[in-house]
Nucleic acid binder design. Sequence first.
DNA 1: GGCAGCGTGATTTTT
DNA 2: TCACGCTGCC
Length: 764
Amino acid sequence: MTGLNEPQKAAVAHSAGPLLVFAGAGSGKTRVITYRIANLIAEHNVAPHRILAVTFTNKAAGEMRERLDKLAGAAVTRDLWVGTFHAICAKLLRRYYAEVGLEKTFVIYDDSDQKAVLKRVMRAADTDERAYPPKQVLGRIHRQKRQGLGPADVRVSRSFDSTLVVLYEGYEKAMRIANAVDFEDLILLAVRIVENKESAAAQELKERFDHVMVDEFQDTNTIQYRLVRALAARHENLCVVGDDDQSIYSWRGANVTNIRGFHRDFPEAKIVKLEQNYRSTGNIVRSALAVIAPARDREPKKLWTAQEPGEPVHVRRLSSERLEAAEVLSVIQRSLRRDVPANEIAVFYRIHAQSRVLEEALRSEGIPYQIIGGMKFFERAEIKTALAYLRLIDNPRSDADLIRVINTPTRGIGQKTVERIMTTASARSSCGWDAIDTAVSELGAGPKKKVLAFQGLIQKLREVAERAGPHELITEVLERTGFRELLRRDDSAEADARLENLEELRGSILEYEKDTAEAGEEPNLASYLERVALVSVVDTMDDAPKVALMTVHAAKGLEFHTVCLTGMEEEVFPYRGIDGDSPEELEEERRLAYVAITRARTELHISHASTRMIFGQTRYLAPSRFLADLPPDATEFHESAYEFERPPPNRNPRPERSRYSSSSRPEAPRYEQSTRLAWRSPEAETAPTGEPSLAEGEQVVDYDAFDDIPPDQGVEIRKGSKVMHKRFGKGIVESVENDGNVTVVARFRGFGTRKVLAQYLSPA
DNA sequence: GGCAGCGTGATTTTT
DNA sequence: TCACGCTGCC
């Protein structure tokens, strides 16, 4: 236990009874967990296969296993149960499927599959999709599941009316017929098994684990917590690790009270707080603290660091998102010049839509990068189709897959025919596949022949699957179905890309086979499909020297030498949805900002653009309220891109930085301050617009790609500015006010003088 | 039955 | 801005 601080030691040494570890950002959490597991095995003779460790992503699971391999040896750690909630539950269900009415070959449906299922149910029930948008319906159903409520347990309320109950029932029925589960089912069904008092399986499961550990505990939801408690009930050796300040998934059901109220459920629990940050410089830690400090209801913690203050946190204001991208580019180039490896540099944004400009900027300079998340590989149409064949082969009951492939590539089986099959199926409460023989008798000779040919094709492929491994199977599938041929004949660039993607899919299968071989397991189709279904965004991140672009959510648990945090504007971060945001949501945005800041080890560059193109419209955006919370003496504010290129690095702080700080009226709402400060920028009116002065040897960023937008022009709103309003059209600003929100009085032709919110204006 | 074009609509964060 | 769905046409 050398090299651990006192609280870390305490957490590692604790070997019996409940334990709650509050692990501040960068406080060596993973280290503590791995040491603790190693310690249990080595010092307390706990058998590895009796330890369950739940992580947040597969990547985290893999890293934990790797570290443990080094600590205790692969032979020892091989039997450990390490994985995400979903992966662990899937594993349990592959074993106890019969307990909950599944077949062993059940498939996991992703969002689009689920939506397809629900839409069919809705159409059958004649439900108006406008009154009940499928996406929302699905969301509500999931919420019920996360509370552990099946269709029969739901209490009808305003947010869940009787129509929804009917749809929930139909959805569940369809999923079971298809022998399919959704993500929530994985957890819910596992809970059902463990909580079933009569079943032998439950007894077995409760006995199974001597120790249960949960990482990122602040992001567990109600049903996950229930599962963990049930699994740990017998031995009560439950160790949960997390940080309520980093709870950023409440929108998908995460319940912070799990961690904040842990002590109520386990009064005898030992509580350890890890508060020393080993990751970041002093300035970064102080900035993070300053941003999280105003949060309500947080468990008191004092994150500190022994490290030097380091470079100040840079905050830059740019006039547009394109200039922001150019700025990010120059920061990255500077870091690269200083030999920071590209994979130690990350660019964060609040929403994926922001990635595009950044990506273009990086590409224009040939900087290697990878985007984490966004449109995922496995969601591409050709990949989904190929996988659908595999899934149908493995699980013929999977209706969503049957419908997807029955006429892809086109084999003359039209919608009418498919409908016929599916109505026959639902009349008999069976799946489409089983209904084919009956349905076919009602079809004309032509369609009948085609459907039977398809049936024969799948049967043949099923025979292949029985004797061949997954990679052979995919080759056969692509050939025999004519899918590859279809793409080959099409000589468009698109088709080429699709063929390449299919090759990549084959590559992923080969990789899977290699992995299983290394783990000493048999590769099989079902486990490959499961793995594909449960990959998380960060799992796809590769270690190559590439700059990483990702959302802040995806960044949780990661760290980088240099971090560029972009889009720090009101509306964007904190993100404002359609119906404004509740205080709770705002709190979560604050925690999200805290997560973002604490990812940086050495350099943190925050930027905000005063205009940004959002959904095809250029809008004025005020700086994020979170910027006003940054400690003035740990941060350095830059007005424009050119400033940054000006040496020396440690010149005196510029006086105008106080514009951002909340010094004048501490009791005033921060939002008001930060917006007012930004919008009444005195410099803006007097700012020199000439060429920036450069010191010798200083490189100017290449703005070629951006030269249609001159820097620092047409950005400020002030008297005389020409603006555009969606309804009123062109107008001239008469005055700008700030009473919480920035409002503008402007004269519009045909509408006269109107007072409007600045956020609804764009430059004209 | 299939395709192309158009218009519409909406547009976080993800296992 | 873009993705999707619908409609109308071949």
